[in-house]
Design a protein around this nucleic acid. Structure first.
Lengths: 104, 104
DNA sequence: ACGACACATAAGCACATACTTATGCGATTC
DNA sequence: GAATCGCATAAGTATGTGCTTATGTGTCGT
């Protein structure tokens, strides 16, 4: 199940941090480790989970692997969220901000 | 951390099923168990996790406890998602559907 | 008042998961 | 072509998680 992979991937705080770093700009696995106190295999395993969830995608460049945010995963979350639109609060500031952003 | 509780809560397929059932209409814990092959304590524990994540809220009615979707949790997910709007694909069908839904 | 009911909580157990160290595999450098 | 580098994978281990079987707490019916 796709949404299962996504929510399971995002359930780990380390993986959310990795995703946020990639959202700020794509980079390779070694660069991602900077300032994170995480071993190389651990990073590799986390990236594999994020990749399986389609939250992240890889782009091989020689012996480096550049990682970037995969829009597909975010779209799937948006799709999941849309199912419950009937319950979205009408006046919460966060939602108003979201609507404004989406309205472009 | 709020978003941690939310993603961790949604990482479990049984809890997502419970949430979906509640989205279709609020009901008490016993009613939720119908057709789910889950013990009473297990249901109670799942509901406690969903409650802690603000995805669900309770409304005590005598010896029954009516559960319903809590819009706060959904708003927090929307807020999290909004942070990455720069990566939302412009032309993916799912997003177009979402936009249409949100536009009411 | 007593039992039945709806639900929560406690404790224990089986399994999943996130880490570690060790090793493998290509691509690059010398 | 040998060593090094960037990354993936394997295997083992400690902790987390979801379940179970009691048991507790408050409410209702009789």
């Amino acid at each position: 199940m796709m949404e299962h992979d996504i929510f399971r991937a995002l359930a780990d705080p380390t993986r959310r941090t990795i995703f946020e770093k990639l959202a700020a700009g794509s980079m390779n696995a070694s660069a991602l480790r900077q300032g994170m106190d995480i071993s190389q295999p651990a990073m590799s395993q986390h990236l594999a989970v994020l990749r399986a969830a389609r939250l992240v995608r890889e782009q091989k460049e020689g012996r480096f692997v550049n990682y970037e945010v995969d829009p597909d995963g975010l779209a799937l979350i948006a799709q999941w969220l849309a199912k419950y639109r009937a319950y979205w609060p009408a006046r919460i500031d966060a939602l108003k901000l979201l609507l404004k952003d989406m309205d472009q």
